[in-house]
Design a protein around this nucleic acid. Structure first.
Lengths: 230, 230
DNA sequence: ACCGCGTTTCGTCAATCGACGTAACCAGAC
DNA sequence: GTCTGGTTACGTCGATTGACGAAACGCGGT
């Protein structure tokens, strides 16, 4: 979540016709002084001023990264008032976690990382670009057709992980009814997987995977993919 | 829309621990060769290779901007197959247009740009960070509670512009029922503005504005704010 | 073998960045 | 007036970028 916001900020600075003033805009938004930010970045305050005033016309990405991550770290130390205001879309109740991978992750690696097993499916030789962990009950009770777009974030080529699934019919029915399809569906701790859900997954050509791993452990195990390590 | 995607790509490159390989990842995603991209960028092909291989450890934002905008321009020349795959959330049916402003836009300037008039309200001395144009009928018929999060995109400090509004009661009722509030509500071409809608807007402290301007003209007039000009 | 396409490596050099410290400016409070 | 906090401007210099072109490499097809 926060990393999406960091990308937003960094991307805006990078693409701006005047990177300096865009940096200044964001620092003002975060309510930080040049001096405090400079300390956080580990540089002298006049460096920050030089960049914001436009003396450096094309700052290197290393500097921009330091600038942005420092602002966000400072925000987090105060409970993320700015970041949370800027990511309301990320706070849909049924979304527990949602991340993009910086590089494609082979499906087999993903399934292994979450201790998953295929439900009578064959994993295609494809890759995933991210995942979303969804609270199944809340999703079923609150999501309408266009809600599913939020689950996909930046890419449909992700794994949707439904938590606390008893038989798993409703998620597959809803997914099947929607024009967009995820690359993979994972049921977390199902009692039994409904045969109809398996049938539907095959009709849609979506690999269906189950795992008995807890959500915190799943999130922990997927962190290395987020950091581009495997 | 596309600019959000460009920011996503640029942000990811900027924040990556290995910008070169992230650039390479995205170029592969777009299916472009180094040679074609180099031509599009106006540099020699070996420059692209030097960057992607990591010879330049901290590329300047000018180069990254050229790289990203060239990839996206090339994608657009082919009907945006990659960009549209990466922005499904942006294609919610009821959203006609949605943009963020690179710098705050004073409310008075925004209202003037869209030929708007206050419906018995006083414009606060505040600023907007973006806007969303919403098809009212589709929104009312299809949006659930969490849908409204999609309307807000990156910030609630935006103007929501509802099109084809007859009296404008439903949008205000729905907005009032939702935990998040926009900074401004605009009714486009209303027949008559419902007094109850005005009352609700005051209760919420949300300025209510009406305009008789057509959607294409509104979008055109707001472009200068997107480019940071006013 | 040759050819075409795609990519990498590397030497080179002018231009710019990254970072420092110093000095100055501005505004508000006492 | 002084002090504090916030910001800007600028000289300086080593390090790095931005860009070029030449040479080389790898792969598939003929």
């Amino acid at each position: 979540m926060t990393s999406d916001f960091a990308e937003k900020v960094a991307g805006e600075i990078t693409l701006s016709r005047d990177p300096g003033s865009t940096m200044r805009k964001w620092r003002d938004e975060f309510g930080a002084s040049q001096h405090a930010l400079a300390e956080s970045m580990g540089v002298s305050h006049s460096v920050v001023s030089d960049y914001e005033s436009g003396r450096r016309r094309s700052p290197g990405v290393a500097f921009v990264k330091n600038y942005v991550t420092s602002l966000i770290r400072m925000d987090e130390e105060n409970g993320s008032p700015v970041a949370s205001r800027y990511a309301p879309a990320a706070r849909a109740e049924c979304i527990i976690a949602m991340e993009e991978f910086p590089a494609d992750v082979p499906m087999a690696d993903f399934v292994a990382a979450i201790g998953g097993e295929c439900c009578d499916c064959v994993l295609p030789d494809k890759a995933l670009k991210g995942y979303t962990i969804v609270d199944s009950l809340k999703a079923i009770m609150t999501l309408g057709s266009n809600d599913y777009l939020c689950l996909y974030g930046w890419s449909t080529e992700r794994a949707l992980i439904f938590t606390d699934v008893h038989y798993g019919r409703s998620p597959m029915v809803a997914i099947r009814a929607h024009p967009l399809s995820p690359a993979m569906v994972v049921y977390q701790k199902p009692d039994n997987v409904d045969p109809l859900a398996i049938k539907l997954s095959k009709l849609e050509g979506i690999p269906l995977v189950s795992t008995m791993m807890g959500v915190p452990e799943i999130i922990e195990n997927l962190k290395r993919f987020e950091e581009g390590i495997w």
